[in-house]
């Protein structure tokens, strides 16, 4: 029997653990933001203290150096389009793999695991040659296709594992009602999969938003380049303007935070009791 004081001790313990967890996690972000307001000299002599004044100039410098004006939108377009395609195609594929018993189902599922195992740098030269042969080098497609291709495995992987755990008879009543395959997917399976969809949207958005090496070699036109390339401009041959880089990284974090915060509630939105006719 749980007594009141026992419960109190337990809750205190939980909060102590959570607060420690929060401190360790918040520290690097706070550090980055605080240092983004320091001058170069201040940062050189004091890396841990508070800034003497808020040196907003870093943000203006960062905006220009990283070419935010253009690169930001390029990143948004490429990331968002790739995420939409990944999730749409991925969810559809996951649905058929998870909910239908056909001969190739397991094989195809395992086939997607391959994509998880390849170090990205190994595909750099082949990818470049492939894009060049297809004639889509220096176009947004040359980033969107690889982003979709390399995010599909984890998307399908997570969605299949999620969809498989639905009770088997979910679709049966719908079929009795005469619903088509695609309608079952759209009206029943997809809504139930929302927490997992939110997860894969967040993950693939982060991957696309931060992706660097493909963007480095596949896009040459400054009008189409993405933000991670711009964020490298702070590094010179031997000197790096760290404070401006922190300002740039802080700004680059905003879209990811927005995506996360928008989807966060989906992550914990449990199924309403009625959704499952167990």
């Amino acid at each position: 029997m749980e007594t009141y004081s026992n419960r109190k001790i337990k809750m205190t313990l939980i909060y102590v653990v959570l607060i420690l967890f929060a401190i360790v996690n918040a520290y690097p972000i706070l550090w980055m933001i605080l240092n983004s307001f320091k001058t170069t000299k201040e940062y050189a002599v004091d890396k841990l203290g508070l800034p003497h004044s808020l040196h907003f100039q870093n943000y203006i410098d960062a905006w220009h150096t990283a070419n935010f004006g253009e690169y930001f939108w390029n990143s948004i377009v490429v990331s968002v389009v790739a995420v939409i395609i990944t999730v749409l195609f991925g969810a559809l594929a996951a649905y058929f793999i998870a909910r239908f018993d056909f001969k190739m189902s397991k094989t195809i599922y395992n086939f997607f695991i391959f994509g998880l195992l390849v170090p990205i740098h190994a595909t750099l030269v082949p990818m470049f040659i492939l894009m060049s042969k297809l004639g889509i080098l220096n176009t947004r497609l040359s980033l969107i296709f690889p982003y979709v291709a390399f995010n599909l495995p984890i998307t399908i992987f997570l969605l299949v594992s999620f969809m498989r755990s639905f009770p088997k008879d979910i679709e049966e009543s719908a079929i009795m009602d005469g619903a088509g395959i695609l309608r079952i997917f759209w009206a029943i399976i997809l809504p139930m999969t929302r927490p997992a969809i939110a997860t894969v949207v967040i993950l693939s958005f982060i991957n696309n938003w931060n992706e660097f090496v493909f963007a480095l070699v596949l896009i040459n036109n400054p009008k189409l380049q993405t933000l991670p390339l711009g964020l490298q401009n702070f590094a010179g041959d031997h000197v790096t303007n760290y404070v401006a880089q922190f300002a740039g990284l802080t700004m680059a974090l905003v879209p990811i935070l927005i995506v996360y915060l928008l989807l966060e509630k989906e992550l914990v939105k449990g199924m309403t009791a009625g959704a499952v006719k167990g």
């Binding site: 395609i85 195609f89 991925g90 559809l92 594929a93 649905y95 058929f96 793999i97 239908f100 056909f102 195809i108 997607f112 391959f114 994509g115 390849v118 190994a122 595909t123 030269v125 082949p126 990818m127 040659i129 492939l130 296709f145 690889p146 979709v148 291709a149 390399f150 599909l152 495995p153 399908i156 395959i181 695609l182 997917f185």
Partner: peptide, 27 residues
């Protein structure tokens, strides 16, 4: 349903094979 499977898996497989598997094979 068979057609559904082909249509449903097709797009994902196409992009995945074209832009992940092919570069791997070249590598």
């Amino acid at each position: 349903a068979k057609w559904g499977i082909v249509l449903g898996l097709g797009p994902a497989l196409l992009i995945y094979i074209g832009f992940a598997i092919v570069p791997i094979i070249i590598s």
